[in-house]
Design a protein around this nucleic acid. Structure first.
Lengths: 205, 205
DNA sequence: TGTACATCAGTGAACGCGCGTTCACTGATGTAC
DNA sequence: TGTACATCAGTGAACGCGCGTTCACTGATGTAC
């Protein structure tokens, strides 16, 4: 039973890296089982078909991302009671997290699913949609709370601002991959942080 | 000769749409020639191999994008001599352009190449890198010029700010595809515009 | 404690299909004289 | 204007390989009595 999860996890780790590097269709079961040192039959013991692998990968990825955001912004709230300051700390922590990845972020499975959605069934597409809506909900609540104490300098919809966070994260990963510049993501997230600061922080002059 | 470019263009249009919907590897030559109503031999008359198709698609896409940005920001400069106002007009025009696409932006081939780069040779990866560096150069020049007249409220590197434009565009396309919300991109670009405005526009109060 | 059976986590061989690529050929159009 | 040849833009058949999937089997571990 420890072994089951071992092999299954090993399959998924290998598959995830390959999918992020060349797409889902180009990642063959053959190469996965070769790297995992099992046979094809072994793969199909763990997953009924290839689509089930996609689903499992995306579900795991989304759950992990959610946990990560939870931890990160919970930690930020521990460091400051003020909602704006906590958000700024959270974004800084996020940037640091990206900066600590030596080869840059390996890529976001949500973006892969978005860009290859004709490959997957409605089930997988729905998981993806819900995940992004979850991010919207999370950050929208954050910005709504900030807006209560800090009237924004610009009249922006909290949902749109929430999407802006996801937009910048997703976009920065694309950019850092395209340019092979691992540090780019962290830098872009700090720019986003600058915007949030500018938008909400009271002007002192 | 009109016919040659016709068929070649038809192949590329069909291929581009398919690649943006499911990735490069999953787009078979078989389905392309079926849709283009030619035989496989016909395809290989126009392209020596599948990688040549990828290269041709990316080159065409990058060139078209460059022309589009040229036209858009040239037009903006016609409408205002002031570099900041011209930039804000340019971003507004860009947002409108996105909003006019009824099904949303079909996707950016640069993002596809970034997320499936293990599929392509060094040649294709280089075209991609240069394209993104081109965007950086374009927008960096724009922001440097703005900064001459309008001291930014925040000390940001023009290159980073330039990348931020690309980041938001790329990210918003990912988001609008993931959520199947065609209008999202335009909205996110307007948020970016709001940031630029906030960053450079003199505070009146 | 020993035996019988069930389940788990795979193996290994086989399958047919679709893929990218090659190549000999062809009919229409263009060019030289 | 007619003929000979070249080029263009493909056709159509064939190729071998790798893909996802199936399935009968297996050896190790767990459970009942």
């Amino acid at each position: 039973m420890a072994k089951q999860t071992d092999t299954r996890t090993r399959i998924m780790n290998i598959a995830e890296a390959a999918v992020l590097a060349k797409g889902f269709d180009a990642t063959s079961i053959e190469e996965i089982v070769a790297a995992a040192e099992i046979t094809k039959g072994g793969f199909f013991y763990h997953f009924p078909d290839k689509n089930a692998l996609a689903r499992a990968l995306l579900e795991r990825y989304v759950a992990a991302e959610e946990r990560l955001f939870d931890n990160l912004f919970d930690r930020a709230r521990e460091l400051s009671d003020d909602p704006l300051h906590a958000a700024l700390i959270g974004l800084k922590l996020l940037a640091e997290l990206f900066d600590d990845l030596p080869n840059g972020h390996p890529g976001c499975l949500v973006a892969v699913a978005a860009y290859q959605d004709r490959l997957f069934d409605a089930d997988v597409r729905d998981i993806n949609r819900r995940a992004v809506l979850g991010w919207r909900k999370r950050f929208s609540a954050m910005f709504s709370q900030i807006a209560e104490s800090y009237p924004p300098r610009d009249d922006v919809d909290p949902d749109h601002l929430a999407d802006f966070v996801s937009t910048v994260i997703e976009g920065s990963v694309v950019m850092s991959k395209a340019l092979a510049e691992p540090r780019l993501s962290a830098c872009q997230i700090m720019l986003l942080r600058g915007y949030i600061k500018l938008l909400f922080e009271p002007h002192l002059k």
